[in-house]
């Protein structure tokens, strides 16, 4: 693994994501202080590149994703997606949410086509396309089911299909496989790798699982706790496809150990709140 230098892409193509020195703070009215959720985030992502973000719970991963999605505005710094400054959500991005955010009154089918409806892209081929992605995430036979009739992992896959069906150029995924069992998870990881290879989408993928990050990503951002900072940006040059066997490779294990070391020895462990109180965040294992 090599530390990546942040620089503009030499080929002259626009970068998929260009985050420069992004900070996000939340004014917390009840605590009467300012929480620094993100600080000095700088990341470049090339077209078709897969970035995994790992870090302890509450370190600002979702916040970063929301900034790129245009749902949260940074208090400092700039973010460009496809060469354009982010001013709000755009149709070239789609988000898979950590809490699924499915419409409870819509069936699987209707939930999956939700984004297409909003973007005015419903036409004769929509039904087929929706069916294709439902099949892709393994929910055939549940087209007419409501979210309350699905398990947590199934709901998460509906959310995944809803994002994939819009065929965005940048896919933003917030722990999309967290509630899925290990076996289905592996299938989904393979599918995702295949889709990405096919469509050339750029992806930002948040996960708690170090193994998942190494399996899927081209780059891994290891984020340390409050304020969320990129501790190290790593490239993964383990050859693809990375199946279960590649986890036994020495490179894989070395990378895994290195990331664990980074996460375990977190200099900013605890807090950098304006008020200065200390809260020990839990480090979740993937």
């Amino acid at each position: 693994m090599v530390k990546v230098r942040e620089s503009a892409e030499p080929g002259g193509r626009v970068l998929a994501v260009e985050a420069h020195d992004v900070s996000v703070t939340y004014d917390r009215l009840r605590e009467k202080d300012t929480l620094i959720a993100l600080s000095g985030f700088t990341i470049d992502l090339q077209q078709g590149e897969f970035l995994a973000v790992v870090g302890p719970s509450g370190c600002g991963k979702s916040t970063f994703l929301n900034v790129v999605a245009g749902l949260t505005f940074p208090s400092a710094g700039t973010v460009k997606v496809m060469g354009k400054e982010v001013t709000g959500p755009e149709t070239d991005r789609a988000v898979v949410f950590q809490d699924y955010a499915l419409m409870p009154w819509r069936t699987t089918e209707q939930n999956v086509r939700f984004g297409l409806e909003l973007q005015g892209r419903v036409d004769a081929s929509t039904k087929e396309r929706v069916g294709h992605y439902i099949k892709l995430v393994g929910l055939e036979g549940f087209e007419k089911a409501y979210p309350r009739e699905l398990s947590g992992g199934m709901r998460q896959r509906v959310g995944l299909a809803r994002a994939l069906v819009t065929e965005p150029r940048l896919l933003l995924m917030d722990e999309p496989f967290a509630a899925i069992d290990a076996m289905t998870r592996e299938v989904m990881q393979d599918e995702l790798a295949r889709i990405v290879a096919e469509t050339g989408q750029a992806i930002i993928f948040i996960t708690h699982s170090v193994d998942e990050a190494i399996t899927l990503a081209d780059k891994i951002a290891v984020v340390t706790n409050r304020p969320g900072r990129i501790r190290e940006l790593l490239t993964v040059d383990i050859p693809r496809p990375r199946g279960r066997e590649s986890r036994k490779l020495p490179e894989f294990q070395a990378l895994r150990d290195h990331i664990w070391d980074l996460l375990a020895d977190d200099p900013a462990r605890g807090v950098a709140r304006a008020a200065g109180a200390t809260v020990e965040p839990a480090l979740q294992e993937g």
Partner: peptide, 14 residues
Amino acid sequence: VDNSLLVAARSFGA
């Protein structure tokens, strides 16, 4: 109304 649903809609450019 669940705010996360509104956020989801906005994320698709609603």
